[in-house]
Design a protein around this nucleic acid. Structure first.
Lengths: 196, 196, 196, 196
DNA sequence: CATGAATGAGCATTCATTCAT
DNA sequence: GATGAATGAATGCTCATTCAT
């Protein structure tokens, strides 16, 4: 990957790529289209990214990074329940507020994931640890059911990813307010952990 | 949409399209590839579907239909909890066993959703009713928390869609067995409904 | 390879390709360029040839075929010397009169040869047999030196290919008449075989 | 052409160009690839060569030069036959041992020949004189047939060029050993000159 | 019912070259 | 001497679609 001291255009490229992806869908993410949009020749993009793969990977990288930053910023809480709720809410809000960052991580077909460097992949998984950790705490404190942390965290991930994914693709009944759905999902995330 | 008296080829087209989609990915879903695969000319497909949109819509229709059939076949159960678990399991199994039916509904949908006829869209929503119904029952019987049924059903949908989606796109840690994750998700679906 | 009953355009394509190759060189042999030249869209060429490789192979095929036809047409002769001279002259004349057929067989880089079907390759070699055969005859009759026929034929091939190649690429001194050079080469071909 | 006081980079450029040409074929001979390979920017090459034409011409120049040096180094011999054989062998060995020097003179030449300066062209012809000279000697001494020296030399050139060309492009039957073919060609070169 | 012929638009990528620094 | 940024043109190839038959 190239890494010049001129990151302006790189930013422009990434932002435009993201905008295109969310506004016009997967098919709009073409080198030519991005170039046209930023008013440069298609060739110019190749001055900053060796090929489309690397550009897409850069997009994914940023998504992973931003999510990590957001989860890191979740303040400590009085109880595991509260912390879990806060983390879940942070994840979901990230997905809803920055769909252009979120969707690139999930919309893109497996083909891009296959070529995604294993090392970065591991970093992406790190975000799950926030959840595994709080499950461990809650479990140790006796408040949460004893469930294998990775398993529990992944199940919670399913809930969070599901709600972000359905809302962003506008599949949720219009009669429902998104905020209400998010609240309910968060409530179910926590309740699903409690010892019965 | 055209509706000739020769449904054999239509079947052949849809099946092939689905097979291509899951075997070779999104990019393989082209009129030409389908035609080549079934041994007909590309033009022939247009005798049965006006354009690619309509073909894709037909694929989605079938997915909705098959899911409906599966959910309808879930037997009555002794308790709302059991019925809910059975319904959830049925949904998830549908998504995992027939990814070629499931993915086209959610993965491709996003690009075709705008052009998807509103009337069919409503029919797709019907599948949510199975879940809203059992929530109503459980709530009436005092076992379930009192939650607005559509809201609760949608939250459950998030859980189911999330797990299907993450497993099928192979994003779940390989250390986890899919079956275990599904069990945990189902468990959390039920527990999320219980009165506390 | 496609093989429709509509060979007109195929002919047009092949002829144009050959003309371009000899007039404007290797780089002019592009699908788009051919298309532009024949007044069709680039896509149309793909209706007749699956890809560029197959088109080029078709060009080579025809060259091999025409050469074979010409060598076959060389009449029987009174002596091996005369037959050898006639064969050599036929080969060289083929190369000089139909450079567009000859050059495609030799100019094109090895990359095309690597993908050339082995079976056709063998057929191309067949043309060497005409020469091996007459060497065998001459040797049996005691007129020619005893040299392994394949070896001798290949050495003669070098002479023929060399003269065609140098004349066609205009490397021969302008003071020399081509006809004189060809005569001299043919003379040397025969004399190189004679028993000393 | 530019002529700076820094010939190191020029050397580096030419060597790399040649290496690329023989290792990865014709298509690899691009300014960008050369630049990448030597670790300089593409622009830098233009400090030493006005354009690709001039670079290629420089490559050809060197080929002509090296061949001249090799032919010059052929020691005097007892007889014209021996000297002719030695010269022929030297030419062929040059072509086979240094294909990166030889091929650029003949393979690429065709596309660049039109723009090759006439003055250099004449120098290239000089190499033919070695052969014309020995023909003259042999003829004077009565051992060789009386053939116009330029004509004879050119005919011999055809033989040498043919064998180098066919072997290097791997068109010779694998059953044949290159060394045997070269021997036979050299033998025929000499025999073709002898008075009968 | 079915097809072959045809096309314009699009794709990712590479190229030789220029120009300001 | 050297470079980064930039570009227009070109490449092989695929696509959805149309139309006359």
């Amino acid at each position: 990957m190239k890494q010049g001291p001129e990151p302006e255009l790189r930013r422009h490229i990434l932002d435009t790529a993201r905008r295109l992806l969310t506004s016009d869908g997967y098919a709009a993410l073409s080198m030519r289209r991005i170039a046209r949009e930023i008013g440069y020749s298609a060739t110019s993009i190749y001055l900053h990214y060796d090929n489309k793969d690397q550009l897409v990977h850069a997009l994914i990288d940023e998504g992973v990074e931003v999510l990590y930053t957001r989860l890191s910023a979740v303040p400590v809480a009085a109880s595991p329940e509260e912390r879990l709720a806060a983390l879940g809410r942070a994840y979901i809000e990230f997905g809803l507020e920055l769909p252009e960052y979120y969707e690139i991580m999930y919309w893109l077909h497996t083909e891009y994931i296959e070529r995604y460097p294993a090392e970065k992949y591991r970093k992406a998984r790190q975000n799950l640890n926030f959840f595994a950790e709080v499950l461990r705490e809650g479990s140790a404190g006796g408040r949460f059911e004893d469930v294998e942390p990775l398993l529990g965290a992944t199940a919670i991930w399913c809930q969070m990813h599901g709600v972000v994914s359905l809302i962003n693709s506008q599949r949720v009944d219009r009669k429902l307010r998104s905020a209400a759905l998010v609240d309910e999902v968060v409530r179910r995330i926590v309740q699903g952990c409690l010892r019965t």
